[in-house]
């Protein structure tokens, strides 16, 4: 065909030509710059994700100022959440993980803070629906954050576990970082405590089960949005910065 056709249809040499030194240099600079920028970006994102919210001052015993009662037969798990916080989705997912393991051995309530002036619909977001759909979990609205304030919760996703005697067993977050799902010490601790603190079971079982845990097993960082704006922050402000922990 080559002879019959005038068009030169010879194969083009597609062998990769070696880039010249100028190009090599330019590329090297570009790649290094690009890599550094990406590393900075990813590092910043990691820093943000691992920055916990305010821990607040959770009540060591069930406050008497509230009409809401704890369960006398099994541990009571309270989770205070901002109904619109995207990071709290991870907390709800982890709560589902916890409830899958604990079942009805724990009484769980999720209190969604309803700021003053916000409607009920604002509170009953997709997250409310999701929390309600978890078996043995009750979603409740916390008008003006009174309960959160009463129990000392300031960051969305703050979980508190009280035993059948109203004593605080655990408080803190149940996600590994902000908005991230996955294995974390908070959820593991709650499951162990809930199972161990069944009525009639000696307290020493807990130590036997979790003998390796350290001190902060009773408390973890909470990753989420603040439940209150600075103007709404309670008078009994007791803030702890991340670096204070």
């Amino acid at each position: 065909m080559a002879r019959l056709l005038p068009v030169d249809a010879e194969n083009v040499d597609t062998k990769n030509p070696a880039p010249d030194d100028r190009l090599k240099g330019w590329l090297l600079v570009a790649v290094v710059t690009w890599f550094l920028l990406v590393a900075v970006g990813l590092g910043s994102l990691l820093i943000y994700a691992n920055q916990p919210g305010r821990g607040g001052e959770p009540a060591a015993t069930w406050p008497n100022a509230t009409e809401m009662r704890y369960s006398r037969s099994k541990p009571t798990l309270l989770v205070f959440a901002h109904p619109r916080c995207p990071c709290t989705r991870a907390t709800i997912d982890e709560l589902a993980w916890i409830m899958t393991r604990c079942g009805n051995r724990v009484e769980c309530r999720v209190h969604f803070v309803q700021p003053a002036g916000q409607s009920r619909q604002w509170v009953q977001s997709g997250m409310w629906e999701k929390a309600s759909s978890i078996p043995d979990v009750t979603a409740l609205a916390d008008g003006e954050g009174q309960l959160a304030e009463l129990f000392g919760a300031e960051t969305s996703g703050h979980a508190m576990l009280y035993d059948a005697f109203g004593k605080l067993l655990f408080e803190g977050g149940i996600t590994p970082s902000r908005g991230h799902r996955g294995s974390n010490s908070g959820r593991e601790r709650i499951v162990k405590l809930a199972i161990a603190r069944q009525p009639g079971r000696p307290l020493s079982d807990i130590d036997q089960v979790d003998s390796t845990e350290e001190v902060d097993a009773e408390s973890t960082c909470v990753f989420g949005c603040p439940l209150f704006s600075p103007q709404q922050r309670p008078a009994t402000e007791n803030l702890h910065a991340f670096w204070d922990r």
Binding site: H82, R84, C85, P86, P115, G179, P226, L227, S229
Partner: peptide, 12 residues
């Protein structure tokens, strides 16, 4: 879609 805003209380 997932996390367009973050909140400080009721301030997005």
């Amino acid at each position: 879609t997932i996390s367009p805003v973050t909140w400080r209380g009721e301030i997005p």
